[in-house]
Computed example of a mutant assay.
Amino acid sequence: MSHLILHHYPSSPFSEKIRAVLGFKQLAWKSVIIPSVMPKPDVVALTGGYRKTPFLQIGADIYCDSALICDVLEHEQPEPVLYPPHLKGVARVFAQWADSTLFWAAMAYNLQPKGAAVLFANLPPAAAQVFGEDRREMSAGMQRLRPADATAAYRSYLRRIAHMAEEHDFLFGAEPCLADFAAYHPLWFTRQCVPVMADIFAATPAVLEWMDRIAALGHGRMEKFSAADAITVAAGMEPLPLTDDVFQDEHGIPLGSQVTIAAESFGTEPTEGELIAATRTRYTLRRTDPRAGTVHVHFPRIGYVLRPVTSAS
C-alpha cells in the first residue's frame, strides 16, 4: 500500500510538476482530487488554512508547497536523483526562477480570453467567473503582468530554454533534475490545458522535444483515493518523529509558540498552530482538527512568513 497521498486536481500546473517527479522516481501514490476553488473543507481539515495546490500527505504529516514536496520525495526515493551533487545549487536557483518568474509570465499569457475560453469551454457558464474571483482573492496585492508584456517575456524564456534543450536531452545534461520539472509545468499547461495558445512554441521545436521526453517519464503508479479516506488516515496515525535539528532561530520566536505561517504573495491564507520545528529549510506546526486529529503541517522557509499569533494581522 502506498503511503504517499497527493491532493491535487488534473489541470493544476504545480500538481503536474509533482506528478512528473513521481513518474521520474516511479513511485506509487494515492490520488485525492480536490476542488480548484474555495471552499475546500477537506483540504483545510488537513492543512489548517493553506489552500494552494498540491499538497502531499504521509500519514499525519502534511507537506505544503511543491518545492518542499520535491525534497520529501527525494528523501523517500533517493534514486534517480532530483538534485545531482554537481547541480544542487544551480538546479534549486533555476527552479525558484521557473516556479515564479516563468510561471507567472506563462499563466498571464495562457489565460488571455482565447485561452480562458478553451479552459472553461466544458464547464457551466459561471465557472470562469468563480475561478477568476477566487484567483483574484489569492493574488490580492500582487503585481501581475499585462498580456502583451507576458507574451514577450514568455517568448524570450522559451528561447532560453530551447538553447539549453538543444545542448542536451534535458536542461542540464543527459538526465532530468529538479530544474526540468520546475520549467516543465507552466509550459505543460499551455500545451495541454489551453492548446489554442500553443502556437507560441512554433519557434522553439527543441522545447517541444524536451517536453515530450519529460512526459514520457509518466506519473508513476497512481491509485484513486477519497478525501474522506485521507482524513481517516491522518486521524488514525501519529505524526512522524522530528529530526534532532529542529531549531534555527531567525525570528526570536521560541518553539512552543502559537504562530501563523503564510505564503509571501500568492495564496496568503495563514495556517495557525504550535511551532515545533524551525530547521534550516522548513517550519513545522502542530495543530489539531476535529476530523483529522493531531497533524504536523510542514512549510519551506523560502517563500513563507512566520509570525507570532499576537502580532499576526
Rank of each mutant, 00 (worst) to 15 (best):
H3Q: 14
H3F: 12
L6N: 11
H7P: 11
Y9F: 15
Y9Q: 11
S11W: 01
S12G: 15
S12T: 07
E16K: 13
V21D: 09
G23E: 03
Q26P: 02
L27M: 15
K30I: 04
S31K: 09
S36F: 10
M38G: 04
D42N: 13
V43T: 13
A45I: 05
L46R: 12
F55D: 03
L56N: 03
Q57W: 07
G59E: 13
A67E: 01
C70Y: 01
D71G: 01
E74V: 02
P78C: 09
V81R: 00
L82E: 00
Y83H: 00
P85C: 04
H86P: 01
R92I: 00
V93F: 00
F94W: 03
Q96R: 14
Q96L: 08
W97A: 00
T101P: 00
F103W: 09
A105I: 03
A106T: 13
L111G: 02
L111K: 01
L111T: 06
A116T: 06
A116R: 12
V118I: 04
V118T: 09
A128P: 03
F131S: 07
R136Q: 15
M142N: 08
R146P: 00
P147C: 06
A148Y: 09
A148P: 05
D149I: 02
A152H: 11
A152N: 09
A153I: 07
Y154G: 06
I161F: 11
A162F: 11
M164H: 15
E166H: 08
E167F: 01
L171V: 05
P176M: 13
A179Y: 01
A179L: 01
H185Y: 15
W188C: 09
W188G: 07
T190F: 11
P195K: 09
M197G: 03
D199Y: 07
I200A: 14
F201S: 15
T204A: 07
E209G: 04
W210S: 05
M211L: 15
A216K: 14
G218C: 12
G218H: 14
G218I: 11
G218T: 08
G220R: 12
A227L: 06
A227W: 06
I231G: 08
A234R: 07
A234C: 12
G236H: 11
G236F: 06
L240Q: 14
D245N: 15
D245G: 05
V246P: 00
D249R: 08
G252A: 06
G256S: 08
Q258Y: 07
V259T: 04
I261R: 04
A262I: 00
A278W: 06
T279G: 13
T279A: 05
Y283D: 13
Y283W: 14
T284V: 15
R286W: 05
T294H: 11
H298R: 05
G303N: 12
V305Y: 02
R307W: 04
R307M: 11
